[in-house]
Design a protein around this nucleic acid. Structure first.
Length: 271
DNA sequence: AGATGTCCCTGGAAGC
DNA sequence: TGCTTCCAGGGACATC
């Protein structure tokens, strides 16, 4: 499923080609997570100026307004050559002078939302409560450590909530907690400072490495040109319940937090 | 207000 | 072999 690195890879794979393109037509498939909130035909004639990203949202900046695209857990965008008929899971198609871009999303957790501007609803509703970008200079160690220690929820859920730092999904959350030696159920304000410093570094390095490698292809991820990622996440804990910890040999355990599986090594992750 | 629970959806895997 | 059940996940929203 696309987490931040995959969304960033998707962004890079479409940005250069789509920029400057005029929207010729818009086709909608089955409804996605939230309504577009505008007449799709109103997008026709607008120009795509650039493609940005905030958290896991792709931002298609138009000459007037912005199109927010979320890939959910099974979404991918891809340029289609020619004018092939939409498949059953192609729920949004942008026909432009610079190519035909499709959003393919079998589970429809994705979203396409139009906003008149980034500083206007519904963009503000979706983006305002997002935390810091983990790959930006704003993600500094001291601020992160202090913010985490102001929370009482389990550390895993603080990471997933995205209010402090965005883009850390379930898989990367499990992995970075393992690297930092932190048990996922530990209350955020009870985690030792030195472990949070390690966690901060792990978030930065793991996400950056994943972006550099073209994302992780755990579940059929590919970029807009159909190229798969090369970040072979030999996950150290995720999905490895019952298997030996790569560090100490203890069987990896699984627990459920907030309806989601957390994988951890009961020996390596204590604090 | 902060923490926790619920729900949306469907393909693939596992179980009978 | 063919059915049914379970599971995965991001994040808005409801509830405590």
């Amino acid at each position: 499923m696309p987490e931040l690195p995959e969304v960033e890879v998707a962004r890079r794979s479409v940005a250069d080609r789509i920029a400057g393109g005029l929207i010729l037509a818009v086709h909608m498939g089955k409804p996605l997570r939230w309504p577009l909130q505008t007449d799709p035909q109103g997008l026709v004639g607008r120009q795509v100026v650039s493609v940005g990203r905030r958290g896991k949202y792709l931002l298609f900046h138009l000459d007037e307004g912005v199109l927010l695209v979320h890939l959910g857990m099974s979404g991918s965008i891809r340029f289609a050559e020619g004018l092939p008929p939409a498949g059953v899971h192609d729920h949004f198609t942008l026909v432009t002078t610079h190519g035909l871009l499709r959003l393919h999303d079998p589970r429809r957790f994705g979203a396409v939302v139009f906003a008149p501007g980034l500083d206007k609803p519904p963009a503000t509703t979706l983006l305002s409560r997002l935390g810091v970008e983990p790959l930006s200079a704003d993600f500094d160690e001291a601020s992160f450590v202090n913010a985490v220690r102001g929370k009482q929820a389990p550390i895993k859920q603080v990471l997933l909530a995205g209010a402090l730092v965005v883009g850390v999904g379930n898989i990367y959350a499990c992995e970075v907690l393992f690297l930092a030696g932190i048990h996922p159920a530990t209350r955020a304000d009870k985690v030792a400072r030195y472990r949070l410093c390690t966690l901060h570094g792990a978030i930065k390095s793991v996400l950056a490495a994943a972006v550099a490698a073209g994302g992780t292809t755990l579940r059929d991820f590919s970029d807009a040109n159909g190229d798969a990622g090369h970040f072979q996440t030999h996950a150290k804990v995720y999905g490895r319940e019952g298997l030996a910890c790569t560090v100490c040999g203890t069987p990896i355990k699984r627990m459920v937090q907030g309806q989601r599986s957390s994988y951890f090594c009961p020996n390596c992750q204590r604090g």
